[in-house]
């Protein structure tokens, strides 16, 4: 068994290396920023003396690699620097919003993952039937829709006309959990629609790909039922691709969340990022980008490790 753990540790090592390089990349991006950080921090009122003072205070006069190490050390302690826009610590701005974004993403994932796996398996089971064609065409259509289109259609139908659900994610008055689910229903269902389509199509493709294998024909020739052929013979071998599909789409949620948060005025990280990009508030952009990228890398890493562990050829070697 030790070789499999070696493999897993190697993957983990590579993942953290990637994370490190990504942080370097994001840090270096700031260095490309035209204009002086201290100048922007102080705005109009800056005199050369105050600029020099703030530079010293922020450590901007130090060489780049030292500043990177300081920045990274700060990040690891939860110190992301100070916002240019309102001069508050970045961590304060991020704090609650990170929770909100995670809540929304998990909410959508909790609906999307089981739904799409089920639809994908059913479509593969009844491939080329009317059901399959219908699900496929609908999925293709919803993949093609921009997120904001899906969001506004839902608002138009479910909030504007019937008034069934709130169109704005309103967090006032300390809502309880069920209340939260109700109030964030529309943004969650928007994300779900977008991601389910992708995931369902990829699940179906992963399974159908395997159905041409000789061992599937063998299972049918052993007199197994179609359901057993799919669940017992195809699914275990489709695990690795399906795990990757899920990871890929959960990662996609991260991107989707940005647009959806803006449409529904949802107080999450995505909206913060968009506002900060518009204000060119670099420390905040940096921090949020790093958080998104880290989530993305960790998701892919988890998928990679799980896929390795699900492969009998790797787990049980000769």
């Amino acid at each position: 068994m030790s070789h499999i753990w070696k493999m897993v540790f190697k993957r983990l090592g590579l993942g953290f290396l990637t994370l490190f390089i990504v942080s370097l990349l994001i840090f270096l991006a700031t260095e490309l920023l035209p204009g002086d950080f201290a100048q922007e921090f102080l705005g109009q009122s800056a005199t050369p003396e105050t600029v020099a003072a703030i530079r010293r205070q922020l450590g901007l006069d130090l060489p780049m690699h030292i500043r990177y190490i300081q920045w990274l050390a700060g990040v690891l302690h939860g110190d992301f620097g100070t916002s240019l826009a309102n001069h508050r610590p970045v961590i304060d701005l991020i704090g609650g919003r990170l929770g909100n974004t995670l809540f929304l993403a998990l909410y959508a994932a909790a609906i999307a993952v089981p739904l799409s796996l089920m639809l994908g398996i059913l479509a593969a089971l009844f491939r080329n039937s009317f059901f399959d064609r219908f699900v496929n065409a609908s999925a293709l259509t919803s993949i093609s829709f921009p997120e904001f289109f899906v969001a506004y259609i839902l608002i138009f139908w479910l909030a504007g006309m019937g008034g069934m659900f709130p169109s704005m994610a309103n967090f006032r008055g300390d809502p309880n959990f069920l209340d939260m689910l109700y109030r964030t229903f529309l943004p969650a269902i928007t994300l779900t629609l977008v991601v389910t389509a992708h995931m369902m199509r990829m699940t179906r493709a992963a399974i159908i790909n395997l159905l041409a294998s000789p061992y599937i024909e063998m299972a049918r020739l052993k007199g197994m039922t179609p359901m057993r052929v799919i669940v017992r013979h195809a699914l275990p071998n489709a695990l690795a691709p399906i795990i990757n599909v899920i990871a890929l789409n959960l990662a996609y949620l991260i991107t989707g969340v940005v647009v959806v948060e803006v449409v529904f005025v949802y107080p999450g990280l995505g909206q913060l990022m968009v506002d900060s990009v518009a204000a060119r508030d670099m420390p905040v952009v940096q921090a949020v980008a790093l958080i998104f990228a880290a989530a993305y890398v960790l998701l892919n890493l988890t998928a990679d490790v799980l896929a390795t562990l699900s492969n009998p050829r790797l787990v049980h070697r000769r």
Binding site: T18, L19, I21, V22, L25, I26, A29, T30, L32, L33, A251, I254, T255, V258, M273, V274, S276, V277, R280, M282, V285, Q286, V288, A289, F292, A293, Y296, V297, N300
Partner: peptide
């Protein structure tokens, strides 16, 4: 390419558009 793809596309473009 691995490293560039480790950052989600929309986030990466937002970052770059802030800079450029």
């Amino acid at each position: 390419v691995d490293v560039l793809m480790a950052i989600p596309a929309l986030i990466f473009s937002l970052l770059l558009l802030t800079i450029f």
